[in-house]
Every structure is written in C-alpha cells, then in structure tokens.
Computed example of a mutant assay.
Amino acid sequence: MSEVRSVARRGDLFSERVRDHCAGRPVRRLDVLVAGCAHDQPLALEWIETRATGADEDHPAIRRVLEERADLVAWSLGDLRSVPLPPRSYDLIQLSFLLERVRHAELVLDRLLRSLRPGGLVLLRMRDRRSAYGLLDRLTPSWLRRPLWRFLVTPGTPGPLPTVYEPLTSSDALHAFCLSRGLMVTDEERNTSGPARSGRIGTAAVAAISWLTNGRYPATHDEITMVIRKPQHHFARLI
C-alpha cells in the first residue's frame, strides 16, 4: 500500500496548497474547473479572485442543483469525454466525488488534465473502492439505494447518483496513474464522510463488511483526498 502523507487538517489542506501555489507569483485570478460540481462549492479564497466553471455528467439530480447555483460562471453537463474543456485553460481542478461514478474514468481524468495549465493543481476527493464503504456502496442495488437515500443525507443532496467504482478509484491505482503520466502526488489523506456513516445502521453495515472481508476492506475511512501537481516543464510525459 502507498504511504499516506497527512500534512494538514483536511479542511485546510486544499487552501494551504493553493496558497503555496500562488506564493511568489503574480497571480491576478485563478481559473477553476469544478469537476463533479453536484457536490462541492468552489474553493473559497478570500485573498485572491477566482472564476469557477463546472462540468459533470448529465443527470437529472445534478441538473436541478446546477440550475439553482450562482457561483459558477458557466457549466457543462454530458459525457465528460466530449464536453467542452479547452486545453490548458485552468489553474486548478476541483475533482469532487466524480471518478467513482463515471465509466472510462482514466479517459475522463486524462481529458481533465489536458485542460489544466502546466504547474496547475488537482484537488481530488473520491470514495475508495478498497474501503468497506466503497464495497458496500457498489454492491447495494439501485432499487434499494433510492428509498434509503433521503434517510442517509442532508436535505437537498443530489442523488442517488450512479456507483461504478472502476479500478482507478483506489489509492494505489491513482498513484500508478500519476506515475505513468509524470504527475506528482504532493499530499494524501484518508477520511470518513460517506452518507451511510451518519447513522447507526449505516455504520453497522460498514463494520460488518470490514469484518466479513477480514479487514481487506477497512472501515477506518471511505474517502481519499489528494493534491496532484502537473509539471511545469514542457517535456514531461503528460498530454
């Protein structure tokens, strides 16, 4: 397993890395792509102007959320292998709980990376397919997830959304992906935030999965948080 590097509290990690990214640079504004914009708000940075654009899969629950948001200058929904993503247009990509619910995850991530400027950052959050929660999430049939959803989340949370969990959605697979493309993983944390963990039934189900798998799918976390940097130099092996 890859070593987990916890260098800051989860709530501060992204802001600290963006602050480091901007230090000593004449940055007037950060262009941000919020990929997976059904969940996260654009990163709040009081000390610098940001312009956020959204992109996500075309799903009725996601469309309803985006139609009510005013914090994005524009957004696109559709197959993320083909939605408009101009190359080298963004300084930051917030990739929020998207990879685990899309097919062709490697192709989608490659395409997102093409839209990132050299030296830019990917601020990634996803569910870990190698966690007990991830296994439970992908094994629960859709006909059961739908009636349970409103009991597991706060009102207004879009969903339930698809659960795909391709091999890329694990720490080891992401590290291998980044290595093959010349990307640097600067930070990694593991946290707990899954909706099924908010109640006793969900917590008990996750614990049972961990026990039944002899800990191969641990109940200690369900979320992976990473900061990934795209190299500055033009000859890096990346898009």
Rank of each mutant, 00 (worst) to 15 (best):
M1Q: 08
V4H: 03
S6Q: 14
R9Y: 02
R10F: 11
R10C: 06
D12N: 13
E16L: 11
H21M: 14
A23V: 11
V27P: 02
L30F: 12
L33Q: 10
G36M: 04
G36P: 03
G36V: 04
C37N: 10
C37Q: 05
A38G: 15
I48M: 12
T50N: 07
R51Y: 01
E57H: 00
D58R: 12
H59W: 07
P60L: 08
A61V: 06
L77F: 08
R81P: 02
R81E: 10
L85Y: 02
P86E: 12
R88K: 10
Y90C: 04
H104F: 14
E106H: 10
L107R: 15
L109C: 08
R117S: 01
R127A: 13
D128N: 15
G134T: 06
R138C: 15
R138P: 07
S142Y: 08
L148G: 00
G156S: 05
L161S: 03
V164R: 09
Y165D: 08
S171M: 14
A176N: 00
F177D: 01
F177S: 01
C178G: 07
S180M: 01
M184C: 13
I201N: 00
V206S: 05
A207F: 00
L212V: 03
N214V: 01
R216D: 01
Y217C: 08
H221N: 02
H221Y: 11
V227Y: 04
I228P: 13
K230Q: 05
P231V: 10
H233N: 07
H233V: 07
R237E: 04
L238T: 14
I239W: 14
